[in-house]
Each structure stands twice: as C-alpha cells, then as structure tokens.
C-alpha cells in the first residue's frame, strides 16, 4: 500500500485516539441539567403545577429532575420534537391548561418559543436551567363540545353488524363498555397519537362490525374537528387492517376516509350542515387483531 496513505491513517489514528480520549473525559456529559439544578426545577414544578397542566422537558433524555417531583405530577411529555405549532395549539384546546417547559438554558427556550409560537406567561430560573410557564399563541378555538370531555354525555354508543343488528354499549361511570373483553370499550385515555401526547378516546373497532359513537349537537355547532390514529402496538403489527372512518350527520355522510395502519394522526375539519342534529362517528374494520385505535376532536361554531 502506498506509504503516504499508511502515514495518513497513522496520523488519523493518533488524532482519533486523542480526540476520543479528550471527548470522553471532558465533554461527553456536557449537556442536560446540572445535578444541583434538578431539585430547584422540581421545587418550582411542585409549587406551581396544577392538574391539567403538561410538562415538556428539553432535552428530553435527562429526567434527573423527576426524582424530586411530588406525587400527582404525571403529565410529562417527552415528544415535544414531534409536535407542530398547530398540535401544540390543539393541546390548549384539548383540556390542557398551561404548558410548562423545562429547559437547560435560555437559548434552548428561545428556540422552542420561536418554533412553536408560544406566549410566555412567566419564567422561573433554576440555576442554569429555566422553567417557563407558557401557552400556545394559536388563536384559541371556541370548543362547544369536546369529544373526550363529553364522552359521558354521548347520546349513544353501539355496534352494528352486517345484518344491521344493533348491540348497545353500556355506560359504566367512566367508559362505555361494549363487551366482556378488557379492550371492548370506548373511554378516555392519555396516549401517544403518532408520537404526540394527547387526550383521546380508546375506540378499538370490531371485526366486521361498525362501532358508532353518537353525539347530539345541542350546542348549535357548525364545525367538526376529528383526529384519529392507531397506537404504537397497532401500526407495528405487520398485517394490521386499516379502519374505515365515517362521520354522518343526521344519516348523511359528511366525511369518509381510510385510516391506514401507519404512524399518522389523521386530522379533519368539516363543516356541518345547518341544523345538524345527530353526529355519528363510525369506525369499521375487516379484522380487529391488534387494532388499538383512538380518536379525539370537538365541535365548534
């Protein structure tokens, strides 16, 4: 081999070894939250956090501060990177009061604020770290009826089969029970929809049956926003079937689409006809193996 090439590799090897040694001794633990800041971060959150708030740590791989959190603080999302500004706005429109950002410094916070167009309410320094209370600056949507919040007020939840036979689900205080098996219900949960932390309704469909969730439009809504998605376990299933989603208003379909078995949150906004009364959200699947399916959304003016 050419002498020059072997010399180059020898020099690269020496340089690489020195670079590696210096990096691992001095710089490999350069980021994240300082250990002494972690109790301070937790102290602020323990004092200021209210139920219905959500916390976004950034960087999301250093959870040392959670060691000092009080019980009851459970809504922490490690998926800020996956959100869009609109989806952050949706959080505030979906029952979340305040967004808390725990960052390792001002620079990172400014980047987040800019990216998501956030409105800073208050900032709390914690050593080098920074805890910020904020909200989305996306114009607040007036929600007349939130499907997750109002699931207990659904007019009816039921299953129909190919013959049209009608099997009602029964309200059990916090969820509609549609069968004996553990998964056979419609009810609220906090979940990841396409990698984003959300409040949503579990609505696992049934083989060759249609699951109907019916809301009465007593609020005079003219707009419907619907989000649907498969959960992780479902879209990783190699041969999982898609779910057919239909939204009908007083018996007339106003939205119909196929929620493919992929990692995606389908979000649709449709106008409702004048005088819309009964809104029927229907979900059908050919085979229900591992069809962990959720939806959320709301009615708006």
């Amino acid at each position: 081999m050419a002498v020059r090439a072997s010399r180059v590799f020898a020099l690269l090897f020496i340089a690489g070894a020195l670079f590696s040694g210096v990096f691992w001794i001095f710089f490999s633990d350069r980021g994240g939250f300082r250990a002494e800041d972690e109790p301070r971060i937790a102290e602020i959150l323990n004092r200021e956090y209210r139920s219905g708030d959500i916390i976004f740590p950034s960087p999301d791989w250093d959870i040392g501060f959670t060691r000092y959190l009080r019980d009851g603080i459970t809504d922490i999302s490690y998926t800020l990177h996956a959100f869009t500004p609109e989806e952050i706005g949706d959080l505030n429109n979906n029952g979340v009061n305040v967004l808390w950002f725990v960052t390792d410094g001002t620079e990172r916070w400014e980047g987040i604020r800019e990216r998501f167009g956030l409105r800073e309410i208050e900032r709390y320094p914690a050593g080098r770290a920074l805890v910020v209370k904020a909200q989305s600056s996306v114009a607040a949507t007036i929600k007349l009826l939130d499907f997750v919040e109002a699931i207990g007020e659904a007019k009816e939840v039921y299953l129909t089969d190919q013959t049209g036979a009608h099997t009602p689900c029964v309200w059990e205080g916090e969820r509609w029970r549609c069968g004996r098996q553990e998964w056979q219900y419609v009810g609220p949960q906090h979940t990841l929809m396409a990698g984003r932390w959300q409040k949503a309704l579990w609505a696992h469909p049934y083989t060759n049956k249609t699951l109907h969730v019916v809301f009465e439009n007593t609020v005079g809504a003219r707009t419907l926003v619907l989000g649907t998605a498969f959960l992780e376990r479902a879209y990783r299933e190699q041969n999982g079937h898609p779910v057919e989603v239909t939204v009908a208003v007083d018996g007339q379909a106003v939205l119909r689409y196929t929620n493919e078995s992929i990692k995606q949150r389908y979000r649709n906004r449709v106008s409702l006809p004048e005088g819309a009364h009964m809104i029927d959200l229907a979900f059908w699947v050919r085979f229900d193996g591992a069809r962990h399916f959720v939806f959320n959304g709301y009615l708006a003016p």
Partner: peptide
C-alpha cells in the same frame, strides 16, 4: 422511543412520575 406510551401509562397508573432509581450514562437515561 416507541414505548413511551407505557411510561405515560405508568405515570398515570402510579400517580407519580418520580422514579426510585434511574439507570443512566452521561445523564441519558
């Protein structure tokens, strides 16, 4: 990453996000 759902479920079910112990290297858990 794909199992974060389970962590959220754990937080909710246990009523706390406070770990008893963390296994980490260079602050990455």
């Amino acid at each position: 990453k794909q199992n974060e759902q389970i962590l959220y479920d754990l937080y909710r079910e246990f009523g706390t996000a406070r770990p008893l112990e963390i296994s980490e290297t260079d602050s990455v858990y």
